[in-house]
Simulated assay, not measured.
Amino acid sequence: MRRIDAIGIAFGVFAAGGIMYLLLQLAGLDSLEAGIWSQAVLVGGLFGWLLTYLFRAGTKKMTYNQQVKDYKNAVLQKRLEQMTPDELAQLQAEIEKEQQSEATDR
């Protein structure tokens, strides 16, 4: 996310709070109650966003983690494409040998 995006989101949340305050006043609440309810909704929204952020961070579904995973997969794919048929056969034999040794260890 770029800095201008973060500034725009912050301004949008600030504006939404002000609009909500005005709408609550127009709905008949006095200024104190309208302020309390608009703050309560904004804090509730912030808390909800925080919970989703913590969930994404805990399950490693963040953008950075996905980019690292995609990069590692691309590097491995490029290395496989550059291997000769003999090297591929040798790698396949090593993988099969490891799988057999793991099966006998169980």
Rank of each mutant, 00 (worst) to 15 (best):
45 G>L: 11
88 L>T: 01
30 D>Y: 01
59 T>I: 00
42 L>V: 13
33 E>T: 12
85 P>W: 05
68 V>L: 05
28 G>N: 04
25 Q>W: 03
98 E>N: 00
44 G>V: 04
61 K>Y: 06
89 A>Y: 01
9 I>Q: 09
98 E>C: 04
46 L>M: 14
41 V>W: 07
91 L>S: 03
42 L>F: 12
71 Y>K: 02
16 A>D: 06
59 T>W: 08
3 R>N: 13
87 E>Y: 03
45 G>K: 01
5 D>W: 15
18 G>M: 11
15 A>T: 14
100 Q>M: 09
97 K>E: 08
1 M>E: 14
63 T>K: 12
77 Q>H: 11
33 E>V: 13
39 Q>L: 15
99 Q>E: 10
88 L>W: 02
10 A>P: 08
1 M>T: 15
104 T>S: 06
29 L>M: 13
98 E>I: 07
42 L>M: 12
74 A>E: 10
11 F>N: 07
15 A>Y: 13
45 G>T: 13
74 A>R: 05
36 I>P: 01
30 D>P: 00
63 T>R: 14
89 A>T: 07
42 L>Q: 11
30 D>T: 00
53 Y>K: 07
100 Q>Y: 06
82 Q>P: 01
2 R>E: 15
41 V>E: 06
49 W>G: 14
52 T>M: 15
38 S>Y: 05
75 V>M: 03
69 K>P: 00
59 T>D: 02
96 E>I: 02
62 M>G: 13
83 M>Y: 04
9 I>S: 05
35 G>Y: 02
88 L>D: 03
20 M>E: 13
16 A>V: 07
15 A>K: 13
34 A>S: 07
97 K>I: 04
11 F>D: 04
23 L>W: 04
103 A>E: 10
22 L>F: 09
16 A>M: 11
18 G>F: 11
38 S>Q: 03
8 G>C: 03
94 E>P: 01
100 Q>K: 12
66 Q>Y: 08
5 D>P: 05
93 A>P: 02
62 M>R: 12
22 L>K: 10
70 D>A: 06
21 Y>Q: 02
72 K>P: 02
46 L>A: 15
97 K>Y: 01
53 Y>R: 09
79 R>Y: 12
93 A>S: 09
30 D>A: 00
19 I>G: 04
78 K>Q: 13
78 K>N: 11
84 T>S: 11
21 Y>T: 09
18 G>P: 11
53 Y>I: 12
32 L>M: 10
81 E>M: 07
87 E>I: 00
97 K>S: 03
28 G>P: 00
38 S>M: 04
20 M>G: 13
100 Q>L: 08
39 Q>T: 15
85 P>S: 03
66 Q>S: 08
100 Q>T: 08
71 Y>F: 12
8 G>R: 06
13 V>C: 08
100 Q>R: 12
85 P>L: 04
19 I>T: 10
79 R>M: 07
10 A>C: 11
37 W>M: 10
102 E>M: 10
3 R>G: 11
5 D>I: 15
68 V>I: 06
4 I>Q: 12
71 Y>I: 05
34 A>P: 05
95 I>V: 07
2 R>D: 15
77 Q>L: 13
86 D>W: 05
13 V>M: 08
